[in-house]
Design a protein around this nucleic acid. Sequence first.
DNA 1: GTCTATAAATTGATAGAC
DNA 2: GTCTATCAATTTATAGAC
Lengths: 194, 194
Amino acid sequence: MSPVQRRAYSTASLLDVAVRVFNERGYDGTSMGDLAAALGITKSGIYHHVPSKESLLGLALERALAALFAVLEEPAASTGRARNRLEHVVRRSVEVLDAELPYVTLLLRVRGNTPTELDALEHRREFDRRVRAMVLAAVDEGDLRDDLDPALVTRLVFGTVNSLVEWYRPGGELGVDEVADTLVAVTLEGVERD
Amino acid sequence: MSPVQRRAYSTASLLDVAVRVFNERGYDGTSMGDLAAALGITKSGIYHHVPSKESLLGLALERALAALFAVLEEPAASTGRARNRLEHVVRRSVEVLDAELPYVTLLLRVRGNTPTELDALEHRREFDRRVRAMVLAAVDEGDLRDDLDPALVTRLVFGTVNSLVEWYRPGGELGVDEVADTLVAVTLEGVERD
DNA sequence: GTCTATAAATTGATAGAC
DNA sequence: GTCTATCAATTTATAGAC
């Protein structure tokens, strides 16, 4: 009987810790030994929950992608003027980032070194394509300036959203609503047609 | 006498290749064997030029930081209204990104795993502080909206600039001027006082 | 300036006990 | 669900020849 009786891990609670360490040290910079130390168990203990280090990455990336794609399926993302659908997707993306920060952070840092990572990159490109279609539609509907390249605007707006993972911390001084409001003000308002 | 007589590497030309591979696979995801393969020489050949893998990273990060800090020393970054100094720094940062893309990309991906990386992160924070001071001064001078948090605006604007490394490629379809113009339009114009 | 050969340490993963 | 013990492969780095 160990002196400090820690609650046993489920695969989900183990994944939470693993993703935190992956973000701190980078996926490739994290060894199974590092994970074991952070978890307070041995390396072999991890293999009871998952078959490999890469499968931990796969589970994490799946979760992040599912949360982002769910936004595109919301009614407000497919109904009404494109400019409003776009604002909805931007705001909800910030909220997903708030709710799933470690998972989305990991997704945004993937380089494509393994099949798992390449698959995630392909899904990210699909998300980008669907947002770019919204920007294009908003220009066509006359709500966004037509003197700016729509593909470039898409990249800048979602570049800004994605850059949040570098500093935003849930429960910190800045609330998710203030961040989303300011981001919409800074990015979309510069693009709107007067 | 080898059948294909490749030109010998200087430390600088070797660093160019190393930084390209670091960006493709991530620094931790790159082994000295990977570098050797990309260079077309053996692992031990690399150690003639540098004493360690980490020293390659250090040289690359130094170069990126020097290019960025040089912008802050330009006359246009310290003279005139803060709003104009800010636009100058934003535009020139995009140009530095264009000129030194692989080096800046590497800098922006550093996690702090080693002393070399921690030192680079500290220098990045110093750059952020100096830009934040410009945004604050621009609000004080009445040129930027005072209903938005200046620290948040700083982060969003430079988050947008930094996100360029994820897709911008020098010599591609989009020129550096068009990108800089659109970026200033999208970010700064949303923040200006009417 | 690059090579072959090799060392010492670390890595991801497995077998089998409790 | 976690442990000890262990392995094969890979990693960073060095010694010394050409």
